[in-house]
């Protein structure tokens, strides 16, 4: 599962939704994979306002990835005057779209429940006593 997907996911348990600690989910024993994907610079630029930058920084540091800039990159930092993608944009593409969790667990910071990731697919189905 892509790192970008984690920007939109939280604990499936209803009562955790209002608890800020339930986001982002924390990867445990994560085995990472890189999958090459064509870069769409417009997509990266327009997904940026949707990212929780602080959460993304937490995730990449928990996964031992290169640290992100302190602040969200500006439009000028993403595309040069010639409209070419900058290194910053390329790095974001690699991080968000090409870096994924192949296996491991995702842990809720509020309730501690752990969701398994197998073959790149996260399992958010809850055991019946938690539904």
């Amino acid at each position: 599962m892509k790192l970008l997907t984690l920007n939109f996911l939280t604990c499936a348990i209803k009562t955790c939704k209002s608890n800020p600690a339930s986001f982002p989910l924390h990867p445990k024993d994560a085995e990472l994979e890189q999958i090459e994907i064509d870069m769409n610079p417009i997509f990266i630029r327009n997904i940026l306002p949707r990212l929780d930058w602080v959460a993304l920084k937490t995730l990449s540091s928990e996964l031992g990835l290169a640290s992100l800039p302190e602040d969200v990159p500006t439009e000028e930092e993403l595309m040069g005057e010639d409209g070419e993608a900058t290194q910053t944009l390329k790095d974001l593409h690699v991080l968000l779209m090409e870096t994924g969790i192949a296996s491991g667990r995702l842990c809720c910071g509020a309730c501690g429940h752990e969701y398994a990731v197998k073959e790149g697919i996260a399992n958010f189905l809850l055991p019946s006593h938690l539904v």
């Binding site: 920007n7 939109f8 958010f124």
Partner: peptide
Amino acid sequence: GGALLDVVLGDLASSLIPGS
């Protein structure tokens, strides 16, 4: 086309961030 994020195993939209 657009960009596929993932297809996750889950019940309805219960694992999605509110307002997303």
